[in-house]
C-alpha cells in the first residue's frame, strides 16, 4: 500500500495553486491528507499530479466578520477545536468537531478538505449545512461563492469544478444565546457517524421557537436540511411531545443503504437523534435543565 507515482507541486499562493489546477488534467489537491492519503496509499486514486496546498500560508485564518465567522480553507480541524471564537460564536461547530476523527487526524485535517471530500456523514459539512455557510471557490481568473444549499451535487461530489478549489468558508453566526446541539451515532468513538443530527434553535422569551435549523448527516447522499421538520417548529413552544412528533419527519427522508446500515435504520436514527438534539438545543436556549428525550 504505497502511493502511486505522481509529480508533486507545492505552490506558495492560491494563484499558483489554481494555475496548476487549470494546467493539469489529472491532478489532486492535497490539503490535510486525512482522506486523500489513504486513497493514494490504497491506489484508489491515481493522479498524475498532486498539488500540495499546505505551504500556502494565507489560508489558515479564522476571522470574526460580525455576522459571520470566516474560515480559510486550510484551517485545521485542531484549530477549530481550540478556537475561542468558534466556541463562543458557533458552539454547534465546537460540539461537532470533537467527533471528527481523532486528535492525530485533526492536526492535519482541514475545513476546506472536509468540504471538498464531502462525506455524507462528515461533521463539518453537516454543521456548514445547518449554519447556511457560504463556500468560496476560486479558479484561475475567477472566484465565486456557493451557498451551502447548492454545494452538494451528489454523493461525495461538491458542485465546484475540477479546476476550482475551496478557499474560504463563511459561517453565519446565530444570535447570542441560541440553542444548538450536535448529536451523532457512530459504532466507535471517532468513526464516521452512521447518522448525525445538527440542530439550531432561536427561542424568544416565553419559550416560543422563532427559527429552527435541522440537518441530518449520513442519511442522504450529502447532509440534508429537514425543512418539513423546521417548518413544524416555527412559532411553537418546545415540548417533549412536539420534538418527538417533529423528529418523526426524518423517517420520510430518502435514505441510502449499505451492508453496514440499512436505509430504515438510518431513517430511524435520524428521528431518534433529531429528537434528542431538539431537546438538548431547546434546553440550552431556554437555559433550562436538560430535557432528556431518550
Amino acid at each position: 500500500m504505497k502511493p502511486p507515482p505522481f509529480t508533486y507541486h507545492d505552490p506558495r499562493s492560491v494563484d499558483d495553486a489554481v494555475a496548476l489546477l487549470s494546467e493539469k488534467d489529472n491532478a489532486k489537491l492535497l490539503a490535510g491528507g486525512q482522506s486523500l492519503m489513504p486513497m493514494l496509499n490504497m491506489r484508489f486514486v491515481l493522479p498524475d499530479d498532486v498539488i500540495d496546498i499546505n505551504r500556502i500560508e494565507d489560508l489558515s485564518y479564522i476571522r470574526d466578520d460580525g455576522d459571520a465567522l470566516v474560515f480559510g480553507g486550510m484551517v485545521r480541524q485542531r484549530d477549530i477545536e481550540f478556537s475561542g471564537l468558534v466556541s463562543q460564536k458557533i458552539p454547534l461547530m465546537k460540539e461537532a468537531i470533537l467527533n471528527v476523527g481523532h486528535r492525530q487526524t485533526r492536526t492535519r485535517g482541514t475545513y476546506g478538505g472536509s468540504m471538498s471530500h464531502l462525506d455524507p456523514s462528515a461533521e463539518l459539512p453537516t454543521v456548514s449545512m445547518a449554519q447556511d455557510a457560504i463556500v468560496s471557490v476560486r479558479k484561475k481568473g475567477g472566484e465565486r461563492d456557493i451557498a451551502m444549499a447548492d454545494f452538494p451535487m451528489g454523493y461525495m461530489t461538491p458542485s465546484f469544478d475540477l479546476d476550482e478549489m475551496v478557499t474560504e468558508i463563511r459561517v453565519p453566526i446565530w444570535p447570542e444565546g441560541h440553542g444548538y446541539a450536535f448529536v451523532e451515532f457512530a459504532r466507535r468513538h471517532g468513526d464516521y457517524a452512521i447518522t448525525s443530527s445538527a440542530v439550531l434553535l432561536d427561542v424568544a422569551d416565553g419559550g416560543k421557537i422563532t427559527k429552527a435549523s435541522i440537518t441530518v448527516g449520513g442519511v442522504g447522499p450529502s447532509p440534508l436540511r429537514v425543512t418539513a421538520a423546521e417548518e413544524g417548529l416555527a412559532g411553537e413552544t418546545g415540548s417533549a411531545d412536539l420534538f418527538t412528533e417533529i423528529a418523526e419527519k426524518c423517517r420520510e427522508i430518502d435514505a441510502m443503504e449499505d451492508v453496514y446500515a440499512p436505509a430504515w435504520y438510518r431513517q430511524h436514527l435520524a428521528a431518534v437523534l433529531t429528537r434528542r438534539a431538539l431537546a438538548k438545543a431547546y434546553s440550552r436556549a431556554v437555559n433550562g435543565t436538560e430535557m432528556n428525550l431518550r
Partner: peptide, 24 residues
C-alpha cells in the same frame, strides 16, 4: 468480515472491519 454473494471481501479495511478501541 463481510463478503458479497460471490465471496468477494467487502470489509477489507480497518474503517469497515471494526476492532474494539479504548472507549468501547
Amino acid at each position: 468480515m463481510i463478503y458479497d454473494d460471490n465471496a468477494n471481501p467487502v470489509s477489507a479495511t480497518f474503517a469497515e472491519y471494526l476492532l474494539p478501541s479504548a472507549p468501547e
